[in-house]
Design a protein around this nucleic acid. Structure first.
Lengths: 185, 185
DNA sequence: GGGCGCATGTAATGAGTTACATGATTGA
DNA sequence: TCAATCATGTAACTCATTACATGCGCCC
């Protein structure tokens, strides 16, 4: 009674931001797997880390759910391409996932917080030295963010990068203050 | 030639911050699994999320590697307890993991960044509305952080919580600025 | 000729979560 | 007596990553 042969939509709950990402890049234009993966691993690797097999598998799952359609293309004797296109069902899913993603506020877990809890088990000198090392590494990664490749007019990669930069800067500020506080004792 | 029957230490590379956490709580005092899990799920659930079976399994693995030792205790007819104690090998591992953890600077991936990239696929009004919802949820979680349970003198849970608060505050500030920027167009 | 880029996948591995299983004690 | 707490675990499931497999075209 809850099952229908022609569902009105796709159940949003079983998809996450990875699906949003794949659907999103297909909103821009039809692309084949290699292209999509290239974009993820090279263009936006600083924003999200998704590996090749994961992308391929998810794409397949999206196809099974009729969120995307596939068309095999052959150019000369090159390897055949599976060109994916977003369907109307997929567009609907995309918009729902996008709204959910925008509204969500869950900050991730910071693995570095564990060490902080046990700071007293190191000598003050060692603790400060460790945090200073963390700080200089963070500074390096902040500088590497400045070389952001240019982006097209549709995707707001700049927003995501800016956000990461802001968070990194905040982390840096906190580290600076904390080191100063530890040194003043 | 690289193998030795009596290893000088434990290979650090196969352990992460979860092991550091378990070893760390055992640095404070000997505890049984239930106690450790209770601490993790109730006291510091805002800092790290580790589930019961994960903790038990890791504890077992640490024991196999002689980082902790186990002693079964029975109090009356209550369920028997497996009381874990950190060994000298474990203490060594703890200090190495602690230094590595302090020095590391890897910021986690922010799932919310994906949505930002596709902001242009929503109307400006919808986009702003979504981000405002994200902001108010974040404000709520910031307020809930103020009720921090008191901590003992050894563990610097306060540092970890402070850090999370600082990052949440930074996220809030960025959101505020970004919303203002979007509204000004 | 050799290596890299294109283009698709599969298989094995590992790690963590959910749900389940057990059984005694304690408090309402 | 019923639920919650104490105390330990196992089994099944999901999910992502690493490494592997294949094969053509292009460039040095």
């Amino acid at each position: 009674m809850t099952m229908q042969t022609a569902p009105a939509g796709i159940d949003v709950s079983q998809w996450d931001e990875r699906a949003l990402l794949l659907l999103g890049v297909l909103m821009v234009e039809n692309q084949h797997g290699y292209q999509i993966n290239d974009f993820i691993e090279n263009r936006i690797c600083r924003v999200i880390a998704m590996k090749k097999p994961t992308a391929y598998a998810l794409l397949e799952r999206l196809e099974k759910n009729q969120a995307v359609s596939v068309q095999v293309q052959q150019e000369g004797s090159r390897p055949p391409r599976k060109v994916f296109a977003i369907t109307s069902l997929g567009r609907d899913l995309f918009h729902q996932l996008l709204r959910i993603n925008l509204e969500q506020s869950t900050l991730p877990g910071f693995a570095g917080d564990i060490g902080l809890m046990f700071l007293n088990y190191l000598s003050p000198e060692e603790a400060i030295l460790g945090l200073k090392e963390r700080r200089s590494r963070l500074e390096a990664s902040l500088e590497s963010m400045d070389q952001v490749p240019p982006h097209g007019p549709i995707l707001r990669i700049d927003l995501a990068v800016e956000h990461r930069r802001a968070m990194t800067q905040a982390e840096l500020t906190w580290l600076h203050d904390t080191i100063a506080r530890l040194e003043s004792i």
